[in-house]
C-alpha cells in the first residue's frame, strides 16, 4: 500500500494555544482512514489542515511538513484552489448552496473552468450516480437543493465533492447530523467510493470506524496516539490510552 499524504512533525497553533502536537502519519492510498478521539482532540483540525481549509481561520499557525504525492502543500507556489480540487471535503452538517441540485453539483466543475453544457450534464449525472442519489433526484435537478431531506443533502454534498474529480475525499463527521437509515446509506456509499478514492473520515462513532475504515488513527489532546490497521487498533491496541478510549472508559 502506498501512502498518498505524508505528514511529518506537524504542529498547529490557534494563537497561543497549541492544538496539534508533532503529528507523523502516512495516509494510505485508495483506502479509508478513520480519525477517532474525544471531542476537542484535534482530529477535525487535522483533517482541515490536509486541504488547507484552516487557511480561512485567522490566527492559525502551522509548522512541519505535509506532502501530497510527494509535493509540499504549504509551498508558496501552491494554488490552494487546485489543491482543494485534488483533496475534496464533505462537512459535518450538510451544506448545499441555496441553488438548484444541478447547480450545486456543477458548481465545482464550473469553478475549474468547465462551461460546456453537454460535458457538465455528464459530470453532474456521473457524480450523482457515484453518490447513489441519482435515482432520487434525477427528475428534479432544477429544484432547490434545500428542499430535499438531510440525508439526501449530505449525499448531494458528496456528489458535489466528487464532481471535481478529486483523488482524496476528506469527510468531517459526515453522518453526525443524520438519522440511522441515512447514516447506513452513507456508510455503504463510502465503502463503494473506496474503489476510486482515498478517504479520510473523522468520526465520533466507533462502530462506524470499525464498519467502514481500513486504518484508524486515534487522537488525544492534540496528539496522534496510535495509528494502524483498524482491526488491530480495535482488537489489540498498543497504547493504554487507546484501549481506555475504545473500551469506553472516557470520551
Amino acid at each position: 500500500m502506498n501512502s498518498i499524504i505524508s505528514v511529518k512533525d506537524m504542529c498547529l497553533w490557534y494563537g497561543d494555544h497549541q492544538a496539534l502536537k508533532n503529528l507523523n502519519v502516512e495516509i494510505p492510498e485508495k483506502s479509508i482512514t478513520a480519525l477517532i478521539g474525544p471531542s476537542g482532540c484535534g482530529k477535525s483540525t487535522f483533517l482541515k489542515t490536509l486541504n488547507r481549509m484552516n487557511d480561512l481561520i485567522p490566527g492559525v499557525r502551522i509548522t512541519g511538513d505535509i506532502r501530497y504525492k510527494g509535493a509540499d502543500i504549504f509551498d508558496k507556489e501552491v494554488d490552494v484552489s487546485n489543491l482543494r480540487k485534488e483533496i475534496g471535503m464533505v462537512f459535518q452538517n450538510p451544506n448545499p448552496f441555496p441553488m438548484s441540485i444541478y447547480n450545486n453539483v456543477a458548481y465545482g466543475p464550473r469553478t475549474h473552468g468547465i462551461t460546456n453544457k453537454v460535458q457538465l450534464d455528464e459530470i453532474v449525472e456521473r457524480a450523482l450516480r457515484d453518490a447513489a442519489i441519482w435515482d432520487e433526484v434525477k427528475d428534479r435537478l432544477k429544484k432547490n437543493a434545500l428542499g430535499i431531506s438531510g440525508g439526501q443533502q449530505q449525499r448531494l454534498c458528496i456528489a458535489r465533492a466528487l464532481a471535481v474529480q478529486p483523488t482524496v475525499l476528506l469527510m468531517d463527521e459526515p453522518t453526525s447530523a443524520l438519522d440511522p437509515i441515512s447514516t447506513s446509506r452513507i456508510e455503504e456509499l463510502i465503502l463503494e467510493l473506496k474503489e476510486k478514492y482515498t478517504i479520510v473520515i473523522v468520526t465520533h462513532n466507533m462502530q462506524q470506524a470499525v464498519r467502514v475504515s481500513d486504518y484508524t488513527a486515534f487522537f488525544l489532546l492534540g496528539e496522534l496516539v496510535e495509528f494502524g490497521r483498524t482491526e488491530d487498533i480495535f482488537s489489540q491496541p498498543m497504547d493504554k490510552r487507546t484501549e481506555d478510549y475504545i473500551t469506553g472508559r472516557f470520551g
Binding site: N51, M53, L56, V80, S81, N82, L83, R84, K85, G88, M89, F91, N93, N95, P96, F97, P98, Y107, G108, T111, H112, C157, R160, A161, V164
Partner: peptide
C-alpha cells in the same frame, strides 16, 4: 449568510 456555504465553496477549490 451561513459560514458553511463559504466553506463548502472553498472546499471545492473556488477562489
Amino acid at each position: 449568510v451561513p459560514r458553511s456555504y463559504r466553506e463548502g465553496a472553498f472546499g471545492l477549490g473556488a477562489g
